[in-house]
Structure formats: structure tokens, C-alpha cells
Amino acid sequence: MALLDRTDDPEQAPPKGAAPIRRLALVALMCLVLGGIGGVFAATATRPEPAAARFIPPRQQAYDFSLRNQDGRRTSLADGRGKVIAMTFIYATCRDLCPAEGSDIAQAMRMVGGRGVEAYVISVDPIGDTPQRVRDWLNRRAFPAGAGQYLIGTRDELRPVWIHYGIAPLQASRKEAEAAAAGADAFFTANPQYNQPQTQPFHYEVPPQPTTTPSGADDAYPDPADLAYRGRARHVAGWDFEHSAYVLLIDKHGTQRLGIPFEALEPRSLARDLRALLAEP
């Protein structure tokens, strides 16, 4: 006589409906165990930092130009062919964002050894950016030898460059720009320690923005001439000295490759970007 399976024996079989209940209980137990493990993992795991903001410009030849550098030598973007160019827009008498941005670029270039890389710093202040002031600015940033070009000119000479790279320059009047530059000169004269080459990062914190809604927030189309709608000015000198700026990396063939906003700029990551472009043929 064949042995009966437990489920074939009416007396040994589980009550009707018991099997689904057991399965449900087992699933619930597994969920509790897995949930507990997940909770422990979530409590102890380190959340990865968000990726730094980048933007990819159209992969095309960067707009070329010819401007005079800090030594009066006519310089074009084509002159940098064969090197990786980090281009940005600055004014020399700024005492907050611009020195922070310049110091980050200079430090990244020191990290890669200064070979095969060059900074093109383009003026947004044709009034205050004199040859002496921009030379002093470069010296304070401690760029590697031959790795820094500060390009200046008249408003008419600089305007096509601003337009092609989407840059809004200073809105200050001539009188305001001259007064701000004179104030910066006086500051550096009274504080000679700031005139020395600075090899350490220049730390700048963006001031907190107001919690109230700017008056132009409900406009159908923001007025680009009304800089106040963006909130509190980030420059200590006020809205007339606000200007747009970012770092644009241009490869050895003169092709624009990567854009980095100021808020995402960091020497170590910039050095990695420079090395990656240097490694290309």
C-alpha cells in the first residue's frame, strides 16, 4: 500500500485556508526582516554628494578674438591652440566673487603642473581694468608661469566677445567704475598683505537671498535690465557691479567643450577636467 502524502490524508491535511495564511505570514515576516536591514543600511550609509553642475555648450569652434593682454601684447584665442584654455570673465578691482573664481582656476592649474593649460581672463570693466591693475590681479592669483592672460580693451573691442559668449558686463557708469577702482587701489595700499601671491583658496560664501518675493517675480517676462529681480546683489559693490561669468573649457583644437558656473567651480574637479582634455590627442 502506497504511503499517503500528508496533503492526501484528510486527517493530516491543514485546515482549509491555512496555507494562504501561512504564506501571507511568511511574506510579512520577510518584509519585516528586509525592512529592518534596509533601515539599518539607510541609517549607516553615506549619501553620495550630488554631481557638480555642468553645462555642455555647442561643440563648435570657440569664437576667436584679438585683444591686448596685461603686457600690451596682442593675443587671440587661436594663439592658445595646442593648449587647454580655461576662459572666464572678470574685473580686477572686484573683491569677492572674481578673486575666488580666479584663485580656483589658478590652483587647478598648479595641480596639473601648469603645462599645456592656460587661463584667458577677459575683462568686463573697460574703465577700471588698466594694465597695472590686471598685472597685479594675476600676481595675486599666483598662476603658473606663462599660464595666465588677462585680456583688456575698450568697450567697443570687448563688446563682440561679450555678445558671442553671452556675457553681461558691468552696468556701472564711468564715474562709478572709476570710484570703485580707486577704492580698491586704496584697499590694497592699506592692506599690503593682500597684494602678495595667494596660493591658498579664496573662500567666498554667497550671501543668503531674501525670503520675500522680488517685485518683478509676477511679470510675464522678466526685464533683463532690472537686475534687482534676481534678489540681493552678490557683489559687495551692488547691482551695478553684477556681471555674468562662468568658466568655459576649450580643448587643444579650439573647440568649446565644458561650461562651469561659479557656484560649481572647485579646484580639484576643475583639475580633473583639465587633465581629461589634456589626455586627448
Rank of each mutant, 00 (worst) to 15 (best):
L270S: 00
W137N: 10
A2V: 13
A106F: 03
A217C: 03
L29V: 14
I163C: 00
Q196A: 15
P192H: 11
E157L: 12
R110F: 00
H164F: 08
E11I: 04
K16F: 04
P50T: 03
P131R: 09
E157S: 12
Y194S: 10
R140C: 04
R47E: 11
A53Q: 14
D136H: 00
E101C: 05
M111Q: 14
M30L: 14
G231Q: 08
A245G: 04
M30A: 15
A86V: 01
V27D: 09
T199G: 11
R234D: 06
A100D: 07
D5R: 14
R68V: 10
Q256M: 13
E101P: 00
D79H: 08
D219A: 15
D156S: 15
I167W: 12
Q171I: 08
M87E: 10
T199H: 11
T93S: 15
I250D: 05
R110V: 07
S103D: 02
L97C: 02
I163L: 13
D125L: 10
N195Y: 00
D273E: 14
N69Q: 06
Q198P: 03
L97W: 05
L24V: 03
L249E: 01
A180V: 11
P192I: 08
P267I: 10
L138S: 05
D71K: 04
G17C: 00
T93C: 03
S76F: 05
I167Y: 10
R133M: 07
D240T: 09
K16V: 07
A184T: 10
K16E: 04
E263F: 11
P261S: 12
T211L: 10
C94W: 02
P281N: 15
